[in-house]
Amino acid sequence: MNISPELFEQDSDMSDYTPFSHGLYIGGKWPPSSNGRVIEVVDPSTEAVIAAVPDATLADAAAAVDAAAEAAASWRETPPRRRSEILRRCFELMTERAETLAALISLENGKALRDARGEVAYAAEFFRWNAEEAVRISGEFGLAPSGANRIVVDYQPIGICVLITPWNFPAAMATRKIAPALAAGCTVILKPASETPLTAYALAALYE
């Protein structure tokens, strides 16, 4: 994906997101799609093509699953307090880069900049909320209705979460799914809408 630098010439923070121009984000790397194809991203306000993102294949999807599976064990064993600190940092980074993210949302989604700023604030809050919830995951111990047995409930990460998001809230619908999954100790694969994928790329680079 290539975004012309002049689109953000008044926003120095855009340099923070240069990694998302390198391709898909899988296993800490940015490879192109395995077939070399791309999807054009259009600015709905001008109908101009502003970027092209990799058109992921089934092989790319399988690679993403493998990467998420490889990371699952260590993330599952990461102490809840550490997971909480990481999620809190994601909230802080989104807040610090709010204007850049809002400009990107407005560019690819077409919503007013004021609304885009509101979405960024809303989206960041999912990380702050779940940062606090990460340390509150506990079990349950109770008495069975019969009175003859004790019931113990233990909450554990379910595994890899595949997250699919719509075009209309490219930041908020992503963080609404990513943050609780990570807080619970799961790894994630995000498939953003092809109409508005640029925000997801920026978030991936920011969280990295």
Rank of each mutant, 00 (worst) to 15 (best):
E9L: 12
S33K: 09
L101I: 10
D13N: 13
A52Q: 09
A171E: 03
A72D: 04
K191E: 07
S15R: 15
L206S: 01
A64N: 09
E132D: 12
E119V: 10
Y155L: 07
S138L: 08
L206W: 03
F91M: 03
G36V: 02
W167D: 03
P44S: 07
R37K: 15
V162W: 00
A72Y: 14
S84W: 12
Y17H: 10
A181N: 09
A52P: 02
P170N: 06
G139P: 08
V65M: 12
R114E: 12
A205L: 01
A48D: 11
F126P: 08
A193K: 05
S45G: 11
F141W: 07
I105L: 08
V53K: 05
T100R: 13
R88F: 14
I178L: 15
A59S: 12
A116I: 07
H22T: 03
A183I: 04
R89H: 14
V38L: 15
R114I: 13
Y201K: 14
G36H: 05
N109K: 05
L203C: 06
M1F: 05
I137W: 04
S138R: 15
V38C: 14
R136K: 11
I189S: 06
E140M: 09
P44C: 04
V135R: 14
A48K: 11
K191H: 06
T95N: 09
L163S: 06
P79H: 10
A172E: 07
S194D: 10
I105R: 02
E195F: 07
V42S: 10
E85G: 10
D16Y: 14
A116W: 04
V153T: 13
A103F: 02
G36P: 07
T165Y: 02
E40K: 13
V188Y: 07
S194I: 01
D16E: 14
S146T: 13
G28W: 04
P5M: 08
L101W: 02
S74V: 14
S45A: 15
K29N: 15
V53F: 03
L58T: 11
P180Y: 06
A116H: 03
C186P: 05
I39P: 01
F127W: 00
R150S: 11
R97V: 05
V65G: 09
S45R: 12
D11G: 08
F127N: 09
E195D: 15
I86L: 15
E133A: 13
S15Q: 15
A181F: 00
S138Q: 10
L107G: 09
A144D: 11
A123S: 12
Y155E: 01
R117I: 06
P166Y: 02
A68M: 12
V65D: 03
D43K: 03
T95A: 11
M14C: 11
A52F: 01
E47S: 12
F169G: 02
I189H: 05
A98K: 15
P157T: 00
I86T: 13
I50N: 05
A171Y: 01
T165Q: 02
N2P: 00
E133L: 13
P32G: 08
A59N: 08
H22K: 14
A202H: 04
S106E: 09
V188I: 11
E77P: 00
G118L: 10
A64C: 09
E108G: 06
A71F: 06
A56V: 04
R37H: 14
A62H: 11
T100S: 15
E208T: 13
P192S: 05
I164H: 03
Y122F: 14
A172I: 01
A174H: 00
A121Q: 11
V153N: 07
L93T: 03
E195W: 06
